[in-house]
Structures are given as structure tokens and as C-alpha cells.
Amino acid sequence: MIKLENIHKIYELDHGKTLHALKGIDLQINKGEIFGVIGLSGAGKSTLIRIINMLELPTDGKVIIDGEDITSYREAKLRKVRQSIGMIFQQFNLLSSKTVFENVAFPLELDQTLSKDEIKNRVHELLKMVELDDKADVYPAQLSGGQKQRVGIARALATNPKILLCDEATSALDPKTTSSILKLLTTLRDKLNLTIVIITHQLEVIKECCDRVAVIDGGLISEMGNTIDLFANPQKDLTKRLVSAVVRKDLNDLLEYTKLDDTYSEGSRAWFELLFLGDKAEDPVIVEVAKELNVNISILAGQINHIQNKPLGILIVAVKGDEALIQKAKEELEKRVYHVQLLGYEVENNE
């Protein structure tokens, strides 16, 4: 559906200096998926999304949409391609002097083949789709942030695009409104068979609605994969920091203030982090292993997150026993959960 091959973007700055914003990006986004791109400020996210619809021209590389390399298209041909690519923005970009109806109608009025009745019917259909059919005659200043973004979505869908690009589309919204917008985007994806690309610095956005995700760092894609896998087992330091702040935020304090040794000593407890995916998050794993091995397993902390409605459970447990028993407990836990990590050994204070 969307394929980027070896995309570079170099900006010419003052005094002969340059900024290499994108450094050989290779990326494939499948038809009908919601694909997230996340990174810190200045990582190249917005440049990347603007290259997809050629609002920014790559310095090198190819942009391929539905098998066609659009990189060399002239402006007239590009305008036709852009009609199949809608875009929504962080600041909504609505026309303040026009009503909601007129904002959504604006791209349709540029198509001289459509009659007024056809435009009217299409606008009302779109407003109903985004649950704003009662706001047609209202001006943007009278709307909440979430309502403004819904108008932006309706306008972006006016020309029946196949692709919807979202550039930090929820950054200006509160968490509850953000969630409602993401649910709307997911519904529209399913109803209209859209391919949606979401650029964001908020991992909570990725967590809620994206099928796959790419992490961009310094103009390079550092990590990419299925969202659930990335949350469960991040590989790169940046991804680990981003994920930790969301799915392990209530566990970090416990680990930060607990001193653990790297080696076992007599009487110490082994601390493990256990990851549970899907239905396994509800299995009585700790009870089963404790009974089977007659071993003392203490639950120290835990939480369950939902990644696209799939449970991802994290438990911090302590296993007490001799080194052989602790190793046996680790092996039994590994049979039952997604991932087991030894965090270290705690020597109990018997004073």
C-alpha cells in the first residue's frame, strides 16, 4: 500500500550548513492497518509523514503508493494522488469564518463536477459519520477541541481517500477526548477500509489503536514491529524508556529504591519480572508453580495494561529458596508466561 525506499531528507540551512532529517528510511505500511510512528521531538516524524503525500520532497529515495512510484510525478499528477490521501493536524486548521458545514464542504467545492445537492448530501453523511450532524451551522469557535478534530476528520474524508495521515492529531486534546478520537479513527478504518498513519510522541496513542509501530530516532528507524510485541519486549534503549514510562510506571519506583545483587548468596530472594500476554494474564501461574515445587513465591507488585484490548500483565515476584530451587522455579515460570527476567537477588534483613 505505502512503501518508502531509502528515503533521505536533507535541509539546506544558513551559512552552508545542512540538516540530515531522514537517513535512509525503509518502511512498508499495509493496506487497512493503523500504523504508528513514534519518536522524540526533532526525530523526523513530521518530515516523514509529509513525504508520504509529497508535501515534502525527499532528497533521495522512492515513495511508492499502490505500486506506483510517485516521487517523480509532476505537480498536476501529484494533486490527483493527494486527493486519495487525507490529512489531519494537531491544531485542526479549520477556517474560523466558515461554519462546520462549510469547512467540510470546502474540498468538495474545489471539484467542479459535483452539484450543490451532491455536496450537501456528502457533507451531512460525513458529519453523521463523525457524530456532529447537529453542529452543521456552528462555527469552530463554539466547538470543543475534540469536536474541532472531528470536523477535521470529516473534512479529510470528504474526497473518499484511501489513506489518512494524522500528524500529532491528538496532542492538543485531553486523555478522555484523545481516547474518543482514537476509537473514532478505528471505527472509520473498519468501515471505510482506510489505511491510517499516526505520527505521535505519545505512546498511549500507539498503545490504544495501532496495529504496528516504528520508533524513529535521529532520522533512523531504530525498531519496528507489532505493537503488542514492542510493548512486551522492546529491544532498543529509547523504546525501553518509552514503554517503561507507560506500562511499568507504577513499578519503577519499587525497583529504583530496592538494592539487588547480581549474584546469589545463602538466604537471599530472587526477584523476577514476569510478562503475561493475552489470556495468560488471567492464569493462576504463581499458585501453580508454588504448589508444584513447594516454593515460597511472594508477589511484590503488578499491573495489567491493555494493548489494543489485549491484556499485557506484569508481575514482580520474589522466590525464596536455595539456588537450585530458584532455578527450577524460573524454568517452570518460563513454561507458563511470555517472558521471565531475573532482576537480581535481595538479602533479607534479619536484624
Rank of each mutant, 00 (worst) to 15 (best):
S115V: 04
T239A: 09
Q303K: 12
H124M: 14
I181M: 06
E346I: 04
E12M: 00
E168N: 01
L110K: 14
D190A: 12
Y73S: 06
S97H: 14
L325V: 06
L184Q: 10
L220Y: 14
L333T: 03
D137A: 03
S179D: 15
L184M: 12
Q149H: 09
N350M: 10
A301L: 12
L114K: 15
K120S: 15
E348Y: 08
E266R: 10
K135G: 00
I85Y: 13
N193P: 02
K291G: 03
R212Q: 14
S298A: 15
I10W: 03
P311M: 09
N294M: 02
D137H: 10
K240N: 04
H306L: 09
E223Q: 11
K330F: 09
L315M: 14
K240R: 15
D190L: 11
N305H: 09
R155P: 10
H124T: 00
G321Q: 07
N296M: 12
L164S: 05
I198D: 10
Q83G: 04
Y338C: 00
D26A: 03
A169M: 04
G61Y: 12
A214P: 11
A21N: 12
E334G: 02
L22I: 06
R74M: 00
Q28A: 12
G61D: 10
P175H: 11
N6T: 03
L203D: 06
T187P: 10
T186M: 05
L55Y: 13
L192G: 02
L182F: 07
T263G: 00
R336P: 06
G218R: 07
R336G: 01
S41I: 01
A172H: 10
V100Q: 05
C209K: 05
S144I: 00
V317W: 05
I85K: 12
K128S: 15
H339R: 11
T200H: 11
N349M: 03
K310Q: 15
I216M: 06
K148V: 02
I2E: 08
I10R: 04
N103F: 07
